[in-house]
Design a binder for these strands. Structure first.
Lengths: 336, 336
DNA sequence: CTGTTAGCGCGTTCAG
DNA sequence: CTGAACGCGCTAACAG
C-alpha cells in the first residue's frame, strides 16, 4: 500500500506538497498539482484516514444512539442524519442501545476514546449524565444532541415535536367523534416524551369534562407485543373503552390485533389512534389514524445542530420544535 | 485530557510500563501495576483509541452494508452481528446503501482508507467487484462476507439459507391446500436470491404438473408499496389467482391490503404467503404464513466468519447454509 | 509557491 | 522486570 512518501518521491516533490494538493489548497501550482495527481493515480494512493484523524484529533464520525434499531420509527430519522453527515464529510456510527443504560454508556465511551466527535441520542438517557453532573450543562461533556426525547433537567440541545399538543389533538379527534371512554397505552413510565403524551391526553380529557380513570392508562415498551398485551388487559375489564390512543404505531398495531382476536369488529366497535406514522400504519387493517412526525427533518436538524456545535466548540442550549400532523385514516370512527 | 505520558510521570514509571500494564502483560510486578492503575484513576486517563488504531494498523471496526435500514428484516441480523462483534472487541459501522451501488462503493472506500477492517454485505452487490476483477477471488479485496445474498460468479464466504428449497416448500404448502393458480411477487430481477426463490416456485409448480404463466410472476422492490402495486396489477386481470407467494413479508402485507381494498374476503378468497417472518407478520390481519429465516444466527455466523478471516488473513471460500422453517398462520387456507 | 522539520499518542523494539 | 528510543503516516508551522 503506497503512502504519502511514495507519492512524493514519484512526483518529485515533498510530502507537504502532496498533502496540500490533496487538501485542495489553493496555493499549489497547476503544474505541480497535475504531477502529484498523476503520481497518486500511478501508485493507487489512498489517504490513510486513520493517520489523518490521529493527526487532526478528529474522526469526522458522529455516534448515533438508537434505543431500538428494529423500530422502523427511527430508520427515517437516521436516514436524515446520515444524509446531512455525508454531505459534510462526516460518517455516522450507529449504536443500538436496546433501551439499556449500560449499553448506552459503553457506546458513549467511544467518544472519550476519541473514536467519535459527538453523540446524537435518540433515546431517553443521557449517557454521561450521572450523579452530581446532572441538572446542569457540564462543560466536560462531549458535543451531543438529543432527538425526539429530551431530559427535563438538563438544558441540552434538542430537536423534537410538541408532544403535549400532539397528544391533545389526537385525543380531541377521538372526543370529537363522540368517544367518552378512551384508554391510553403509554410507553415506558420513565420516558419524558411519554409523560408529555400522557399529559396531553389528560389535558384534552379534562377539558372535555371527563376524568381519566387509573385503569385506563397502561404502560408498554413500544413493541407490537406490548400493545397486544395491554389491549388484552383493557378488554378483560368489566367495561371496555370505545377508543384507544397508543403512544406509538407498533403498539397500536398490536392493540389492533388483540381487539380483533377478541372478536371486536374494527373500527366499528373500537377506534384506535397511533403515533409516529411509520410505513406500516398505512397498511394496517384498518389503516391507522396517527400523528405524523417529520422524521427525516428531525434527523436533518439534529445533524445540523451537531455540525454547529462541532464548529463553534460550544453547546447552544437550543431546542428546536418541529410541527406534527394528525393523519386521519380508517381506524378512528364515530363512537357506537 | 491526560495521555500516557502524564500517567507515566504520575506513577513514576516509563510509558512502556504503563502500556504494558494496560495491555495486561504478565511481566509487570503487582506493585508497579497497582501504582500505574492508581495513576490512571487519578488523572482519569483513557487510552486514545485513535492513536492505538493508527499504531496497530487496525480499527477493530467492521463495516456492515445494509440495502435498507428501514426494512425490519435486517435489524435482527444486525443485532446478531453486533453482539458477536462487541464480545470480541469489535465495533460495527452501519452503512445504509439504499440498494444503490454508488453508495455501496462510497462506503466500501472506508476500508481502503483504513477506517474499517472488513465488510459484511447484506445486499446484492459486491462493492469492489467491477470489470475484470469479477468471477475470481481477488487477493486485493479486503476481508468480506456476504450474508443473505450472494453472487453466483464469485466464491465469496457466504451465510444464507437454501432459498430454492424454502420457496419450493412455501409453494408446495399452497399446492397442498388445493391452489392451482398461484402468483409470485418477486423482488428485484437482478437479485440472485430472488432468482432462487423464483426457481423454487417454478420447480414446485412444475412438479405438480402446472406451468407458470408469465403474467403470474411480478417484480417489486421489497417495499410495502410494491406489494400493494403488484397485487393490484394481479387483480386487474381477467382471472385472479387464488393464492400469492411473496418474496418478502413487507410485500405480502402490501398485497394483503390491496386485496382487501379490492373487496376480497381474506383469507377465504385469497391465500398469501410471505418470506422472512418479520415481527409484523404475526400481527397482520390475517396473520401471515411465511418462511422464517434464522435472522439472528445469520448475523452471528457472518461475524464469526469475519473474525476468522481477520485472524487468519485469508478468505475461505466457504458457504454456510442455515435452516429455514415454514410458519403456517392464518393467511393461507384451502382453495375455494 | 514549496521544502524542512517537528510532533500527534501510542506500541514495540532492544538494552540493561 | 523496566526504561529509552524509535517510528507509524500524516499535517501544521515555519523557512526559504
Amino acid at each position: 500500500m503506497a503512502n504519502i512518501k511514495d507519492v512524493a518521491r514519484l512526483a518529485g516533490v515533498s510530502v507537504a506538497t502532496v498533502s496540500r494538493t490533496l487538501d485542495g489548497s489553493p496555493k499549489v501550482t497547476a503544474a505541480t498539482r497535475a504531477r502529484v495527481l498523476e503520481a497518486v493515480a500511478a501508485c493507487g494512493y489512498v489517504t490513510n484516514a486513520l493517520a489523518r484523524n490521529f493527526r487532526q484529533r478528529r474522526t469526522h464520525t458522529v455516534l448515533v444512539l438508537v434505543p431500538d434499531i428494529a423500530n422502523p420509527f427511527f430508520s427515517r430519522i437516521i436516514r436524515g442524519i446520515e444524509r446531512v453527515a455525508l454531505e459534510h464529510g462526516y460518517r455516522i456510527l450507529l449504536g443500538d442501545t436496546q433501551y439499556n443504560a449500560e449499553r448506552e454508556r459503553a457506546y458513549a465511551a467511544l467518544v472519550t476514546q476519541r473514536q467519535a466527535d459527538g453523540i446524537i441520542c435518540l433515546g431517553m438517557n443521557i449517557p454521561f449524565a450521572t450523579g452530581r453532573s446532572r441538572s446542569r450543562l457540564d462543560p466536560d461533556w462531549p458535543p451531543f444532541v438529543m432527538a425526539c426525547e429530551y431530559d427535563g433537567e438538563i438544558p441540552a440541545p434538542t430537536v423534537c415535536i410538541d408532544n403535549v399538543r400532539a397528544a391533545t389533538e389526537a385525543t380531541r379527534h377521538l372526543l370529537d367523534l363522540g368517544h367518552r371512554d378512551i384508554a391510553f397505552i403509554s410507553g415506558p413510565r420513565a420516558s419524558p416524551l411519554c409523560r408529555d403524551r400522557l399529559a396531553g391526553f389528560t389535558e384534552a380529557m379534562t377539558a372535555a369534562g371527563l376524568r381519566v380513570r387509573r385503569e385506563r392508562v397502561r404502560y408498554g415498551d413500544f413493541s407490537l407485543a406490548a400493545g397486544h398485551q395491554q389491549m388484552r388487559a383493557l378488554l378483560g375489564g368489566a367495561r371496555t373503552p370505545s377508543a384507544v390512543f397508543c403512544a406509538n404505531d407498533e403498539m397500536a398495531i398490536g392493540a389492533l390485533r388483540a381487539a380483533r382476536q377478541a372478536g371486536l369488529s374494527l373500527p366499528r366497535e373500537l377506534s384506535i389512534v397511533g403515533f409516529d406514522d411509520i410505513a406500516f400504519a398505512e397498511f394496517a387493517t384498518p389503516a391507522l389514524t396517527t400523528i405524523r412526525q417529520p422524521r427525516e427533518q428531525i434527523g436533518v436538524r439534529s445533524m445540523h445542530l451537531m455540525l454547529e456545535i462541532l464548529r463553534d466548540g460550544q453547546q447552544p442550549g437550543r431546542r428546536i420544535v418541529l410541527t406534527h400532523e394528525l393523519v386521519v385514516r380508517e381506524s378512528s370512527v364515530a363512537a357506537p
